[in-house]
Amino acid sequence: MQHGKYRFIVGFLAVPLGLYALFVIWPFIQSIYYSFTDWTGLSPEFEMVGFANYERMFDDDIFWKSLQHSLLFALVLPLVTIGLALFFAFMINVGGKRRRGGPVISGVRGSSFYKIVYFFPQVLSIAIVALLFAFAYNPDSGSINSLLRGIGLDSVQPLWLGDPGLALWCVMAVLVWSTVGFFVVLFSAGMASIPADLYEAALLDGAGRASTFFRITLPLLWDTVQSGWVYMGILALGAESFAVVQIMTTGPGGPDYSTTVMVLYVYQKAFRDGQAAYATTIGVALLVVTLAFAALVMRLGRRERLEY
């Protein structure tokens, strides 16, 4: 069977690899090339300018602010989302009280209903979610401030997206709200495949909910959590964060640059200011940040794989 094995493999790989090279690798190389030019994006003429765009980027306060916000997104969002999702998934699948005659492990009462509810935001387009929350955050007649007024908190009427101290957190809350359901389902699926006898053994040993979670569930779910972490990081650095910042925030990107993120800055430079070359330079920086993030997550998350 060794005969022709490689030809067989190559036959399968050639097309996907070719497509990958054409639509992923080649644009990457092109983009890096354009970051060394002064291309405007509006005419075919451009010249090489060496590292001028990079020098400019390192002196650009707005770039540093957007980098800072993007990093904060990549750090805080996965932490909060995955933490919440793990908690919800645990309660839905394992955390219930033991009922006489029931299965050894089960979720809290009504858990199948919660599972569906948590997943709801996932079926809404992120653009619609952002618009809905933009209405909710309206300080004059939005639902949040109306609710506050309704319960007698007339003096607590924050500006939400209009307040530089709150705006970024408001945006993050929307992203958490819209993505947590996906991870609940993902982790639920992972938990369902953990053998019940492990839990039974733990119960016999007298383990409570917390120690069951940290000693049994989390270690056996580690691979899923790790890939969820990378996936969430991508969302936080990429398209998702762009959509909410672009649609919801002041400016967009404000107030006072408090919500600007790297993807938004790429977009503004390329399509508003006619500075496509500089935009690709920021794009290259974004690429570096994203790859570094993935590498870091994989390195820190390296653990022995448990077989069961």
């Binding site: 992923v24 092109q30 983009s31 495949s193 779910l221 790790q226 390329a270 794009g283 940040v289 590498a295």
Partner: peptide, 28 residues
Amino acid sequence: ATGPGRRDLIKRSAALGLISVPTMSFLS
């Protein structure tokens, strides 16, 4: 269901590059 292995993660981080520079690629 069981979570992907290391190889999947590598694939994912490559896919992440794909998402991270969408603007660049369609600009070019």
